[in-house]
Design a protein around this nucleic acid. Structure first.
Lengths: 235, 235
DNA sequence: GCCCGGTATCAAGAAGCCGTCAAGCAGTTG
DNA sequence: CAACTGCTTGACGGCTTCTTGATACCGGGC
């Protein structure tokens, strides 16, 4: 979750503070650097999702800052400067900047361009694989909302599914009555243990439980847990 | 290697020709479209690495063109327009444009911004999503807003289409009521599940669903999913 | 053998969700 | 302004799921 950090490299205190305030008002985490050296450091340390870079820095040429950051990072860089010349714009964009905004700038527009930059940056990282929970021969595919036991599809009601998915998320561990009730039924339920008995019973039926080798194990007076039948029972 | 194609959607012949010449002089393959409809077609067919889009088109609002292309593609879009009002800029960037250049523009600067766009586009590259989604005998052509079932064209309203296209993008996967409502109707809708029932019903009618082998499956209490009727249920 | 706390199972009524129809409304087009 | 299209909303029957109470079960302590 580093994508929502925006690094501002800007030596004029008034502009830097204004940008930080505007960014933070929008919910971003803003990091402010006032020199090129600090900016490069901050780019490496804070791993921002986008950078706003003023070209007119006291200690080094802003374009060198851009080049330096580009040697190791593809983070979107929005350049901010008073220089409106076409040649300078082309040069700057070609050394790796993603956008070029001239001062005086409109804050809403700059923020919109920051959103574009963050949007682009996020798109790079691939989507995470589907989290599929497996406990023994029980497979709980949460995104697809599907359950299989020994390769066979099993139809579950929403509450049944939530119950099983919760247990499957903590394989082998006991979940207390209270914890299950609050997670599946809601925070105001905590003592309706009868629900659990009913649903545990229904689940066992649907899972095709063998009473001598249960997958859904009762911990009397405590709660329930889901175990891998093939696992070694002795610790 | 389609990344070096640039699509220009521009109705003024002089500007279109000038841009094409400038792009081809730089070694890019330029495709020119003079209407929004043609532009959307070309975006789907020629799979460009970047798009230059004039907002002032004769047949439709340029922002709608942008939105439409964004329904299936992340190709960088550089918007070109005479309107330099801040509000319009912010709006346009927020609906998915990557850059905003006002006329009269500097050709070298625009070309530099095209280079940025192509650079970014390549970096993102993963795998381009197919703009034509197929789930069993249901074919959803997102760019053309066209749907076929078993080879037969089916007429859908915009909301129906958005609903179906969303489901088709995640074949077999359950999309929750909330997710569908927010994607199709907007973020402020989240609990109007009645809409879903009405539209699911209409869709099933138009898709010619067989109640015993539904393509659009209800996941009670959770959401809906689109399945390939012929598919084997084993993962 | 009997009691007792906790558990499993069953079944019936209540509640909620789903599919469908149809009427009202708003925006567009000719 | 009339016809049309698509969106929203209310009503209602049918069905699934949830809840709840009744009853049987099981193991340990006495």
């Amino acid at each position: 979750m580093t994508g929502e950090t925006v690094l501002v490299i800007e030596d004029t205190p008034a502009i830097g503070r204004a940008l930080r305030a505007a960014l933070e008002a929008r919910g971003y985490h803003a990091v402010l650097a006032m020199t090129g050296k600090d900016g490069i450091d901050a780019a490496a340390v804070s791993d921002p999702g986008a950078i706003i870079l003023d070209l007119g820095l006291p200690d080094m040429d802003g374009r060198d800052v851009c080049r330096r950051i580009r040697t190791w990072s593809d983070v979107p860089i929005i350049v901010l400067t008073v220089d409106d010349s076409e040649q300078r714009k082309v040069e700057t964009l070609d050394i790796g900047a993603d956008d070029y905004v001239t001062k005086p700038f409109s804050t809403p527009e700059l923020l919109a361009r920051v959103r574009v930059a963050l949007r682009r940056g996020r798109a790079v990282d691939g989507e995470p694989p589907d989290p599929i929970l497996t406990v023994g021969d029980v497979v709980v595919d949460v995104p697809h909302h599907r359950v299989q036991v020994a390769g066979e599809d099993v139809e579950l009601t929403p509450k049944e599914f939530a119950f099983l998915a919760l247990l499957a998320r903590y394989p082998g561990r006991v979940l207390t009555h209270r914890a299950i009730l609050q997670e599946v039924w809601g925070p105001e339920y905590g003592s309706e243990t009868q629900y659990l008995r009913v649903y545990a019973s229904q689940l066992r039926k649907k899972l095709g439980e063998d009473p001598s080798a249960p997958r859904l194990v009762t911990e009397p007076g405590v709660g329930y847990r889901l175990v891998d039948r093939a696992a070694i029972p002795e610790p």
